[in-house]
Amino acid sequence: MSRNTLPVLTVVLAIFLLWYIAAIFLNAAWAHDKATRSGEVLTTQTLVADTWSQEKPKLPAPHQVGAEIWKTTVEKKITSKRSLIYHSWVTLSATLIGFALGTGLGIALAVGIVYNRTMDMSVMPWVIASQTIPILAIAPMIIVVLNAVGISGLLPKAMISMYLSFFPVVVGMVKGLRSPDAMQLDQMRTWNASATQTFWRLRLPCSMPFLFTSLKIAMAASLVGAIVGELPTGAVAGLGARLLAGSYYGQTIQIWSALIMAAALAAALVALIGFVQRMTLKRMGMA
């Protein structure tokens, strides 16, 4: 960890530096425009100052995004429609429900695939093939169709999240439940263990590292699903809606703050799973 701290900090610093420089270049045209219209002459200093403080810049500078996030999280009431925490919560709740449903379904299907040969041969190729299909493209349709049946709000988004998070879990768990080697399975056989005993005592514990790896992917996918699921609802609430509304009205700072918030959310969720993973595997002696 400490060995990597300095390089990582350097890279992060470099990214911020590049960001500020890029902001100057991308926003310079607008600054020049404005200057010509008002007849001002721009020195390098005023140019830089202007590019870092425009209201609708092509690329907002990091401190502008930071200020916007501060304003919409700390200074706004959580109940306000303009509070980023409110929108994050909307997205987060759909993400978590979808993630929970997808994980449950994924594990159930994986158990079926591992224990039933017909299911293995019939379903598994489709599970793999479905990974190659751009499922997100169906998202707007699912939303609209579910709306038409009278299901709206949280559930349609959660369905998309479930759909996206379900596949990594199936694939990972099938791999994990099959990870005990022939010797360990033979050993269970010599003890005349039942299928249930083999599952709880051998297969399930063995699958834990695989489960956590897939859970991280599933969580990230679930969040993407929730965000994309918010796009076709006409930008009501949620981080996806903030992105869409921002892009309608050219509110780049709003887009970036929603984006950074989504990134922070993803990082926090994945880190949380990583933490549980470390604790569990450490207790199980597998890490």
């Binding site: 003890w191 005993q197 005592r201 597998m286």
Partner: peptide, 26 residues
């Protein structure tokens, strides 16, 4: 009782827990 080439002990169980495993199953 069958002893394999590798010990094949479960890392998530203690030594006692590993020896107890077949007894639990039985």
């Amino acid at each position: 009782g069958y002893v394999f080439q590798a010990a094949g002990l479960y890392p998530w169980r203690t030594i006692g827990g590993n020896v107890r495993l077949p007894l639990e199953i039985m």
